Amino acid sequence: MRAEVWVEVRPTEDEEKVRRALSNVFIYDDLRVEESEGKKYLVALGLGFKSLIRVHNLIKEQGIEDSARSVLIKGMEDNRVVFHLHKQAAYAGVLTFVTEENESPLGPITFIVETNDPRRLIDWLAPRTSRGRRLYETPPPEDP
């Protein structure tokens, strides 16, 4: 599993605060600053499911498995799952999915996750529930 995460650093933002928002939701192995079309981005790379443990834990703590699962399934395409998180909420340690453009005024945190088994990834991050209770716990797939 490989996750690449992009987050724009707007001119009015403190880069350290953007890094904190990113770190609250993602454990990265590498971080670089990239400029594209006059915009500045932090681009983080995470290898293995450990990089998504904070997303997994926040979904569980907040009890948002059903809505998270819906968003993740909509973002599934071949061997990729793409989703967006609200940057300001992430800074506060809260997981909020962005599903509409401009829903996150300072731009979203965009996750592009590549895996051989996107369904298993989604089952691990946001398992099915019944009456608000998880029906199962899926262990993270083994990292090669």
Rank of each mutant, 00 (worst) to 15 (best):
S104W: 01
E101V: 12
P118C: 07
R119F: 13
P139W: 07
K74T: 04
A68E: 08
F49H: 05
F49L: 12
R20C: 01
G93D: 06
T96E: 14
A21L: 09
V7P: 00
F111S: 01
V18Y: 02
Y136I: 12
A3N: 01
A89F: 12
S70T: 12
P11F: 08
E35N: 08
F83L: 08
Y28I: 03
H56F: 11
P139H: 09
D29N: 14
R2M: 07
I112V: 15
W6N: 06
A89R: 12
L125E: 02
G93K: 12
S70R: 11
R134I: 12
T96I: 14
I27N: 07
S51K: 03
P139E: 11
E16D: 11
Q62P: 10
I73P: 02
V82A: 09
F97Y: 14
V82R: 11
M76P: 01
K87H: 10
P127W: 03
R20I: 11
L125M: 13
V43I: 15
D66V: 11
F83S: 02
V9G: 01
I73S: 08
R80Q: 13
R120V: 11
R120E: 15
S67I: 15
K39G: 02
N116Q: 14
R131A: 10
Y41I: 04
F97K: 02
K50M: 03
A3Q: 03
D30W: 11
V98M: 03
P11V: 07
Y91V: 01
H86Y: 06
